[in-house]
Nucleic acid binder design. Structure first.
Lengths: 224, 224
DNA sequence: GACGGCAACATTTGATCAAATCCAAAGGCC
DNA sequence: GGCCTTTGGATTTGATCAAATGTTGCCGTC
């Protein structure tokens, strides 16, 4: 199963560019604060200018990139206030998705999630940062798919795009050690079809993850 | 104070197109299910094709418009499941914004909100549907601005874009009679700096509004 | 330190290509 | 014989590209 860079046949170029850029942001090929130029992406992705522009507008609308006023585009840098807001939003939405997932989870989905979590643990054990980021996102994406709530899933995906680059920075600083998660508790709650337990485990997972990101912030607030 | 179509000098064309389209969606110039064509907008807004494309990508990313697979764009039609999700998301996020607003509200902001609410009541009394939609949105937008939470505000604005066209339909069916809101309770909570009361009043306002929208749904599910 | 020129970049336009839909006419089936 | 289906072309619309235009920021000079 080729999970990344799968079937891109027949899709419009702007869609392909969007997905590549999204993965670059989610999995840390772009660092916070880094400027993003249209022409640079045209060369790097070997495509025209129009698809790149459309993909960028889309990512800006989702908050994954920031429009700097003087028509410069950069990867946003999160400050404490932003992390606080993201934490609030994630804790409000993701437990609800876990709750719905627990009510709809079948054996096939549970097996998929368990397998993904096993790959995640393997990546952590190997110190494979990119693997960790990919499988962690995959785990949550599969869970959201089970919840069958497209709008909520969209909202949460947008939140993940916002903290993706910062998460990569954290992993770059601390490696894959000390990356605890509540996935085992989530899986147990899903297996038991216990919505309340799933929501609570997800809340703990979110809180833990966001604390990790906050810990990787620039120590002093000296940026203008 | 010219609230709509304000200073558009120096702004890029795609930004202007985006704002015009957003207002058309929020205030009901576009009906749910209506197809939106790029070239139609090029003629209607008297601009080039690229700015229109970029504005559409942005609105699609925000869920305000839907990409129909066969590269057709339409105003989305909400079903019961979508309204349920939107209600859940709004009830999770907007009370939090009200809570923050109560902690940060000063006299000037309170005066602005009170004035906006008065204009809202006047629009209801006159049966002015567009005025109701504009002032109701303005009230919530001003409240969100007071909360000083740009990310949460972005998320909520996106939700409003999703149900905007359906809200217009409801008003078209029932007029401006029977449009109760909890704005007086919200204002009282803000004046008292009572965060809990503000959150509770906002929750009630959201629930009431979404119930109105659900009531305007197609009575039977006979659409293919 | 201020001014002017230069280079890089974003923005926008218009044209061209490709895909999908629409309409109508022909054929087959009841 | 009438009606439904299907197929062909014509038209509308979307996608992409290349070039022209305007702006911003930088750098060297006075």
């Amino acid at each position: 199963m080729v999970n990344i860079r799968a079937e891109t046949a027949g899709l419009p170029a702007h869609e392909i560019v969007y997905r590549r850029l999204r993965d670059m942001i989610l999995f840390g090929e772009l660092a916070p604060g880094q400027p993003v130029t249209i022409q640079g992406l045209v060369e790097r992705l070997e495509t025209g200018m129009t698809p790149v522009r459309e993909a960028l507008r889309r990512l800006i609308a989702e908050g994954a990139l920031a429009f700097q006023g003087n028509r410069r585009i950069t990867v946003p840098v999160l400050d404490r206030a932003a992390i606080e807001e993201l934490t609030l939003a994630r804790e409000a939405l993701e437990p609800q998705l876990a709750r719905r997932a627990a009510l709809r989870c079948d054996e096939a989905a549970l097996a998929r999630l368990t397998a993904t979590d096993a790959r995640l643990d393997a990546a952590i054990a190997k110190g494979d940062v990119t693997g960790y980021l990919v499988e962690n996102h995959q785990f949550h994406a599969e869970l959201n798919a089970v919840a069958e709530a497209p709008i909520l899933t969209d909202l949460v995906e947008g939140l993940w795009l916002r903290f993706g680059p910062s998460l990569r920075v954290v992993c770059g600083q601390f490696g894959t050690r000390n990356l605890p998660d509540q996935h085992k508790a989530i899986l147990a709650a899903l297996a038991a079809r216990d919505a309340d337990a799933a929501a609570q485990a997800m809340q703990a997972d979110v809180a833990q993850g966001m604390t990790q990101i906050a810990a990787g912030l620039p120590d002093s607030i000296d940026s203008e």
